[in-house]
Write a protein that binds this DNA or RNA. Structure first.
Length: 282
DNA sequence: ATTAATGTTCAGAA
DNA sequence: TTTCTGAACATTAA
């Protein structure tokens, strides 16, 4: 489930390795399936050795470790990936270890239960070409209300579905899309092109509000408990959820209606039928 | 004991 | 061009 707040938390969790030097890298073969490491394991380990960690960036839902030599080590957690400095939840799904020298953090681990995620070593040039303005739109924390409207305003898609489009705006995922629209008072099934400018401004305002608050709480750890910060600690924002995974519970805003679960584009959406209507009304 | 559901991304189809 | 569907994977709930 790592979405922007969780990935940002991972990024912050390894900021302490900036300035360190790479002692070695070990892609750990999974007992069942080969790990999803792009370059050959030995080759990656050889190339990365001795490189200096210059910065830690985030590109949408990816953590980017910038290395000397114009290289980037890119962690893409997808569903169940974790970037850790503490010992991983289990040895079993440990996929990758980065060993460092010159900082208190000895190792960074990539652990991924389902193994849908990946660790890649790519040149900055190639990474930029692949992601920036190509696969990924402007970051959700940076995009302006105007730009958000420009990018989605003419789409016929439901607003909830469109917010998940990383090419339109990068970082919003399934959980936060529901939360954002609830606070904005907009029905998740409303077609983008039906939204007025004032509504786009409200979506944008609530988007920032929700994402920043979720980052403060170090993300959401859902009932399956998978997501953890870099210290292997659960996040706290799940306790602030107003609609996500709250089907049947009373809406905390209107208190008169009950949260409903629907499916859009094969994903769960939660909303309050009282606060979030298709027509303007408010 | 099967089957569905989980959420992100991509390839390929409509 | 835009939008939709299924698959990738591992684990758990039904």
């Amino acid at each position: 489930m790592p979405e922007l707040p969780e990935v940002e938390t991972m990024r912050r969790g390894i900021l302490g390795i900036v300035g360190a030097k790479v002692r070695g890298a070990t892609p750990l073969p999974s007992p069942r399936k080969p790990i999803r490491i792009e370059s050959a394991a030995a080759e990656l380990a050889e190339t990365i050795k001795g490189k200096k960690v210059q910065a830690i960036d985030r590109l949408g839902k990816r953590v980017v470790v910038r290395l000397s030599g114009d290289l980037s080590l890119v962690f893409e957690p997808r569903m169940t990936g974790l970037v850790l400095v503490a010992d991983p939840p289990s040895q079993e799904h440990l996929r990758f270890r980065l060993d460092l020298t010159g900082c208190p953090i000895r190792s960074v681990y990539y652990w991924d239960r389902r193994g849908l995620g990946s660790v890649r070593l790519v040149s900055n040039e190639k990474l930029a070409a692949e992601l920036v303005g190509n696969k990924l739109g402007p970051d959700a924390l940076v995009i302006s209300p105007k730009e958000l409207q420009e990018r989605l305003g003419s789409s016929q898609r439901a607003i909830k579905v469109a917010l998940l489009d990383q090419k339109a705006v990068a970082g919003v995922g399934n959980l936060y899309a529901s939360e954002i629209l609830h606070l904005a008072g907009i029905h998740p099934g409303k077609a983008c092109r039906k939204l007025k400018t004032a509504e786009w401004q409200e979506v944008h305002r609530r988007l920032l509000e929700v994402l920043h608050l979720a980052i403060e709480h170090e993300g959401s750890t859902l009932s399956d408990g998978t997501y953890r910060n870099a210290l292997n600690k659960a996040g706290g924002y799940q306790n602030q959820h107003r609609v996500y995974d709250r089907e049947g519970e009373a809406c905390v805003l209107c208190t008169s209606q009950v949260i409903v679960r629907i499916v859009q584009a094969q994903r769960a959406t939660f909303y309050c039928p009282g606060c979030q209507t298709l027509r303007k009304k408010r």
